[in-house]
Simulated scan of single mutants.
Amino acid sequence: MFELFSYGDAGWGDEILQGLAITVQLAIATLPVGLCIGFLAAFASMSRARPLRFLGFGYTTIMRGLPEILTLFVVYNGAGLLINAALRWWAPEASPIDFSPFAAGVVALGMVFGAFAAEVLRGAFQSLDQGQVEAGRAIGMSSRQIFLRIQLPQVWRFALPGLGNLWINMLKDTALVSVIALDDLMRMTKVAVGVTKQPFTFYLLACLIYWAMCVLSELVLAQMERRANRGIRRA
């Protein structure tokens, strides 16, 4: 059985590791995209302007109500059509552009992550003591200084547990990109199963790898939470 996991033509070890590398790269690339979308949607939902609030709440409501795999299909098929339509309008003689599965995965998972992160961040902002903001204004701090020195450090501490859970969920959701032909861990596992006809062995290996990534993430997140809460007295 261990020969199945060896390197070279006799085993599938190198293919599985290549798929694992793509899965990790996809998750890492999606995280900043999702956080940016989350902050923008959170700010929009807390805005005093009614159109922005409607836009922020509408985005989070719609995206949280759609299945992740459906969002992935819409982005993968629809984004390519929109890009090529815009390209034909701008330069009719230009060649069509292929929207890569990796880019589609980053965009789709980032949109989903951002919708849930927006609610976490909005709750964190609403948990802040507004007296601290007023005190910052009283001593002449600008809005940027208040955000960077007073609000953001506390928002990070309040939102970190929720964002950590979203990261772990997103790490597992990367398996969905296998349906759009991205050679991630799940797709390479399916290929190995199709060739060797040993589904239990390879799917069990995939389970263990995903579980190990989640456990490692939990250890890192626990350390980050301890650092974020340093100096905070526990009741």
Rank of each mutant, 00 (worst) to 15 (best):
Q25N: 11
V195T: 13
V155P: 04
F5I: 09
P32C: 01
V74K: 01
V120C: 10
N77V: 11
S143C: 12
I150Y: 08
R149G: 08
R137Q: 11
A175D: 03
R144D: 09
A181S: 13
G56V: 08
R187D: 03
V120P: 04
T60S: 13
E218H: 13
L221A: 14
A192Q: 08
L55S: 12
I62W: 15
A79R: 04
A118P: 03
I37P: 05
P32T: 00
P96L: 04
V112E: 04
I16G: 01
G78W: 05
E119L: 06
I37M: 10
L171V: 11
V195D: 12
F202E: 07
R233E: 12
G110Y: 11
S47M: 05
L205E: 10
L121C: 06
I150S: 08
A27P: 01
R137I: 02
A79Q: 06
Q223V: 14
Y76R: 07
A27Q: 02
G58E: 07
T60P: 04
V112P: 01
C36M: 15
K197Q: 13
D129H: 06
G131Q: 02
D14N: 10
I168R: 03
W12G: 00
V120M: 09
R227K: 15
Q130T: 15
N229P: 05
I168H: 03
Y59T: 05
T196A: 15
L182N: 00
S45L: 09
P92A: 01
Q18G: 14
F125V: 15
L204Y: 12
L55T: 11
F39V: 15
I139W: 03
G56M: 10
L221R: 09
M1N: 11
L152Y: 02
I168L: 09
R157Q: 13
G34P: 01
V24W: 04
G78N: 04
V112R: 07
P161G: 04
R137E: 12
E225M: 11
E3V: 13
R187T: 01
S178H: 07
F200N: 06
A222C: 11
Q223C: 08
I232R: 14
T30L: 00
M213Y: 07
I28Y: 05
I168Q: 01
P153M: 07
D129R: 07
G162Q: 01
F73R: 05
Q25H: 08
M224Y: 10
A86E: 02
D173N: 15
P96A: 03
Q198E: 14
P199E: 09
A135F: 02
V177A: 02
C36N: 11
L35K: 02
V220R: 04
V33Q: 07
G13E: 04
V74S: 00
E68R: 10
V193K: 08
I16D: 00
G78V: 06
W89K: 12
I209N: 09
I83R: 00
P96M: 02
M46E: 14
G123V: 11
A49S: 15
F99N: 00
A86D: 03
F57N: 14
C36D: 08
G123M: 06
